[in-house]
């Protein structure tokens, strides 16, 4: 598995798109920091960008890589290598190279502008952790989609649809249901509904940093406990972990059974 991981990883970091991705983040954070010297403000802006962009890039890259390296995968399958290690190796290769672009692209400008002397370091680490988690989750989801769909076009459309659903449509449905059922006690439902969407979970991590004053304005013991203590942070992070583990397990399961 490690060999395949290494191969995929180096294959990707040699590719043009990784550099474009890296450059994009470099440019974004340099421009943000140049316009606004305040590190914590820049972190906040980046958080907003990351929860939308990282899932999109993760999904597209994942699907693209799977379809592009399909012939190579088939070649590997003829060798005495475990199936799960082929696919997991590829998956980790893609995800790690994306995470590396993200970490370097955001990290270099911030270190350059004095991250280690600033109080924003915790928020920044949270930003990187959220970004990395989202990359792992959405690359895994993309691999799942690709494994289930032989047809490239179909796979791509499903991937984009998945992103659109989780980034926009889910929240729309969520909002509608909250308004329709507003006469019922909703706070438990609200918290549970967010756990079904990794983008919402990452958003909550940001809210906990940014809008805690407004969040505490809502009267409800469940909310108070969730947001008022560290419970919210840990719950959101651990649910994100679950979101990484489940799709990865499914990749391994599906790869074992699939006919090539």
């Amino acid at each position: 598995m490690l060999k395949i991981l290494k191969y995929s990883f180096f294959d990707l970091i040699r590719s043009r798109w990784s550099y474009v991705y890296l450059l994009f983040y470099l440019l974004l954070s340099f421009v943000l920091l140049f316009l606004n010297q305040d590190l914590s403000k820049a972190v906040i802006t980046l958080m907003n960008v990351i929860i939308i962009l990282v899932p999109l890039i993760g999904t597209i890259f994942g699907v693209m890589y799977y379809y592009n390296s399909k012939e190579f995968t088939e070649l590997l399958l003829a060798q005495p290598v475990k199936r799960s290690s082929i696919f997991l190796g590829q998956y980790l290769g893609v995800a790690l190279s994306l995470v590396m672009s993200l970490v370097l692209g955001l990290g270099i400008p911030f270190v350059f502008y004095g991250l280690f002397q600033s109080s924003a370091i915790w928020n920044f680490s949270l930003l990187l952790i959220t970004g990395a988690m989202l990359t792992f989750i959405f690359t895994a989801l993309a691999f799942n989609i690709a494994l289930y769909n032989e047809n490239k076009i179909k796979g791509f459309s499903y991937a984009i649809l998945l992103w659109l659903f989780l980034a926009v449509i889910y929240d729309g449905l969520f909002l509608m249901s909250l308004i329709v059922f507003e006469t019922y006690p909703l706070d438990k439902f609200t918290l549970i509904a967010t756990t079904f969407n990794p983008i919402d979970l990452s958003r909550i991590l940001i809210l906990l940093k940014l809008d805690i004053a407004a969040l505490l304005g809502y009267t409800g013991a469940v909310f108070q406990k969730f947001f008022g203590t560290n419970l919210g942070l840990f719950a959101a992070l651990s649910t994100l972990m679950v979101w990484v583990v489940l799709p990865v397990l499914n990749i391994a399961r599906k790869a074992k059974k699939k006919d090539f």
Binding site: I169, D171, D200, L207, A214, Y218
Partner: peptide, 11 residues
């Protein structure tokens, strides 16, 4: 008030 949880969502 519960909808506060959707703050900063793209939607």
């Amino acid at each position: 008030p519960e909808t506060i949880i959707l703050m900063r969502s793209l939607f």
